[in-house]
Design a protein around this nucleic acid. Sequence first.
DNA 1: CCTATTTGTTGTACGGATGAACTATCCCTC
DNA 2: GAGGGATAGTTCATCCGTACAACAAATAGG
Lengths: 416, 416
Amino acid sequence: MTTTTAASRQHTLRERNLRLVARAVFEAPEPPSRADIAAATGLTRATVSTLVDQLVGARLLRELPAVADGRAGRPAVPLVPEGRSMLGLGLEVNVDYLGARAIDLTGATVAERVVPGTFHDSEPAEVLGALGRIARDITRDTHDAGMRLAGARLALPGLVDARAGVLDVAPNLGWSSVEPVPLLALDGLPVEIANEAKLAALAELGGPGFVSADAAVPDSFLYVSGDVGIGAAIVVGRELFLGERGWNGEVGHVVVDPAGPRCSCGARGCLEQFAGKEALAGAAGLPADAPLTDLLALLGPRHTRPVKPLDDGSGRPPAAQAAADAAVRRAGQALGSALADFVNLVDVHTVVLGGIYTDLLPWLRPEVEGVLAERVLAAPFVDLEVRAARAGAQAALTGGAREVLRGVLGDPAAWV
Amino acid sequence: MTTTTAASRQHTLRERNLRLVARAVFEAPEPPSRADIAAATGLTRATVSTLVDQLVGARLLRELPAVADGRAGRPAVPLVPEGRSMLGLGLEVNVDYLGARAIDLTGATVAERVVPGTFHDSEPAEVLGALGRIARDITRDTHDAGMRLAGARLALPGLVDARAGVLDVAPNLGWSSVEPVPLLALDGLPVEIANEAKLAALAELGGPGFVSADAAVPDSFLYVSGDVGIGAAIVVGRELFLGERGWNGEVGHVVVDPAGPRCSCGARGCLEQFAGKEALAGAAGLPADAPLTDLLALLGPRHTRPVKPLDDGSGRPPAAQAAADAAVRRAGQALGSALADFVNLVDVHTVVLGGIYTDLLPWLRPEVEGVLAERVLAAPFVDLEVRAARAGAQAALTGGAREVLRGVLGDPAAWV
DNA sequence: CCTATTTGTTGTACGGATGAACTATCCCTC
DNA sequence: GAGGGATAGTTCATCCGTACAACAAATAGG
């Protein structure tokens, strides 16, 4: 309501109405005609026509062939986002892979490269140099195919100061005080950095301003991603809430039990010590770096949890299964406790679980939902919902690319 | 950045630039001239002149006598907010008082009535009827004096659904599912309701858009108000962050110790059971409804805390002092733990303590700051600050009235 | 074939910001 | 104390983008 504004001139009107028209097309359930847009926005058909013509000229929109729909009158010309024209580029350095993904305005992935690796205690210049080469390949290929790259977002697993463009610290990479953008050496391409969980959260939204065909995507949710550490993002009204610097959502260090084990952060009883990947593996009797599949194997087939850990002929030792079961149960209680605090403090009622929690959700759900129902004050008045993330692998790549395209839609006048 | 927009027409320009000019005057450290505003906003002097003339005509701004400041050139005409013209009205029902306060654009209180009482388990229609009569008195008096009331905000101590205009539940009043606005019977005056802590938080901001003369007021802070319950508000960039429905900031029910005492909410180990007013009094050996002054008397003179609770000749029994001291220390640790979670989750680095914590801060500070430094992940990178609230008595009245005036400043075109 | 209907386009009018020129009022200097 | 320079505020022609109304295009139905 009260956003900071600059002086408004004539062309400000044009910019704002271009955005309005572009959004009307991207958010419509069906490809709208110029007349539909006029009705939806309150602009006149004349104005909409000139604006649409500019957006079509800029190859942000495309006209479909006019089709008679059986009603009287001149048939409408449906408008849709133009594919393979404007692209957003998502980049990511994570502990076990490098990646780049280019997405167009229809939501289609146009180019992608994901390079597995081990970047624990790696050299920033080397790793980012390699990622830069990948990105330049994509830039060249897409440019040769007549597409334009609007910008890039680099996702990093650590404390990111987006405004300063500095990665302050990324424990799992062993990086600190890195300025990553120059190391990518992507001349002429505007690159911004962001925290990995924040961009992964945005991937849960339907697209660059689209209302997803899958109508169940909520406008507001907490995204909580479990791995060795536990990160989170707050999305309200399809916008990231970042606090003062974007260092929010540190749910991994919320107090679960002050008498609990000491955490790597120095404090006691943080959620991470109960529900982090390594803590969970350890409590289940597995090595700290055991892959998630080992734990899932111990837990047995999904959607069933035996009341008693009896030998079911699967070859899993009952004692090991019981330990894994207890560990996941304890993790679920701890996660529920921290999520209850989260919900009580920020008042967002949908929780999307990503990372290892996506696959573990069937086993976690009873404890998480039980604790939430007990501890969330507003529980009697709202529908609390816990769901699994759906953005798939390397969600931050998708989220980053889409965020770039959201920026294009936020100021289409810059591209006409 | 990406707020929802309606169609922009010619008059949209005028509205936006009127707001821009009005804000420039209210936020300037010194009364600016038309030329100053032009320089600050990027508008031309010609445009600023016509806009200022409209705002002066609407009695939102006032010209001071032109004064030669020693420099060459025609002397500038300083512009200031017009006093005793446009008013915002703050209303409040709390457990121990009713109140109404009208504030003008200069920040001056123009009318005020505060009626002490006991509204525990009271009748909504009766109490709100009485408050409505007070408000109508103020409306009549200010109208007769040539002032205009832009609207009113009603502060309530409970879960408020501002959009629906419904108070879902207020435990301390014994109210539930009340629609308070019609019961006030204030015809023609737009009244909105809000949670008491949220409006009290806004009172910490300098005024209706002013940058406070006291430059230390931050743009972003967590406001935590201690009483029987503990409420909070999140302010980022001088705006309230409300989550989905405004039911955020329930810091009183954050987990401090899962082995702790059972809370009135049904869960265990909530902050309220360590740092709520009644819990604190009980732990200090006082009756649950003891006034805060009793506890302060036990604690002895401020800013001194004896290492050993020896008889200092003041007549306070050492054992009672020791109990009070231990209770406050325990409360400080619990409060620090919950605030650390709060800061870790929302990334706001200034905490303003209101309610009983304002007076208790000298004793709470060491434990609170100690726990924050230990538990806040970003502590090495940012300045954490804990400070006392300064808005004074009935802060929600002030905050509500100012919020109305902020609305006027957000759309001055509606008043020209 | 003619009319009703809906879509999209083509003018004209209007509101609001701009920029340059103009007036008003100061300080400073000779 | 007269004139020049400087700064504040106003006036007016111009431009830009949207609204409004009329018109052209393309369909359905009788």
